[in-house]
């Protein structure tokens, strides 16, 4: 235990630097996944079309082992940030896509009818009614994705370097105590980011729309919908 404390004291600046690198690798992966999955999920949900498509894309991405993607990247392009980002995006797309589709698709049709009856245009229905009602579930997906991503970011150390993984895969240099210390930082980062996004989730949830308890745990149950092949 005192070894662990000593490691933190002796390597504070190294850990800080690696943590920043971990977070930026994770943030880039999350950003790309959001750009790809969020608009497609929301759009498909808005059209109430493509449940088959969004569910199957999610399932296919889920079946891509992170290290396998990294290995293929290493074989094809060599050491590069692209390898790890590819793996992270594949991890983050399914929860974001599934949740944004399910959320928008599941908005109470009466609310949408009322909005149309009030003379809202299609775009307004989406931005003023469907999206606000969907944010809680969409954010649940983003939180899950961010936890997956942060827990997997250490594999970057195999794919071109960067972040706390550099310490975790280098036990000969940093010893077990270093591995454990860096691991604890990763776990803390994952919980911190999840907590932070949880606050955002609460902030964007319209007043009057209670946040279901089920959405607040770190990894929600896989939707039964995912079984529809």
């Amino acid at each position: 235990m005192s070894d662990l404390l000593n490691f933190y004291v002796d390597n504070a600046s190294l850990l800080l630097e690696k943590s920043v690198a971990t977070l930026s690798i994770a943030a880039l992966g999350l950003a790309i996944a959001l750009l790809l999955a969020l608009p497609s999920g929301v759009w498909l949900g808005h059209r109430h079309a493509g449940s088959f498509l969004s569910i199957n894309i999610s399932n296919a991405f889920r079946a891509l082992p992170s290290l396998a993607l990294i290995a293929i990247g290493l074989g094809l392009i060599g050491l590069s940030l692209i390898n790890i980002e590819l793996a992270l995006v594949a991890l983050a797309v399914p929860p974001i896509l599934t949740n944004s589709y399910t959320a928008v698709d599941g908005v109470d049709p009466d609310a949408v009818d009322a909005a149309r009856g009030m003379g809202m245009r299609d775009r307004q229905v989406l931005t003023k009614v469907e999206l606000p009602l969907s944010w809680p579930l969409i954010f649940a997906g983003i939180r899950t994705a961010s936890v997956y991503i942060i827990a997997t970011t250490p594999l970057a150390a195999l794919a071109g370097g960067g972040g706390l993984g550099d310490i975790i895969v280098n036990q000969p240099t940093y010893h077990l105590v270093g591995v454990i210390a860096a691991t604890i930082v990763v776990v803390v980062l994952a919980f911190a980011v999840d907590g932070l996004l949880g606050l955002v989730q609460r902030a964007v949830t319209p007043r009057g729309l209670a946040l279901p308890k089920e959405l607040q745990t770190i990894v929600p149950a896989a939707d039964t919908a995912t079984t529809a092949a």
Partner: peptide, 15 residues
């Protein structure tokens, strides 16, 4: 069980 989920596998195996 959630805590396990946040532990990077490459670290967990070593520990």
């Amino acid at each position: 069980a959630s805590i396990f989920y946040t532990i990077p596998s490459i670290a967990y195996f070593q520990i």
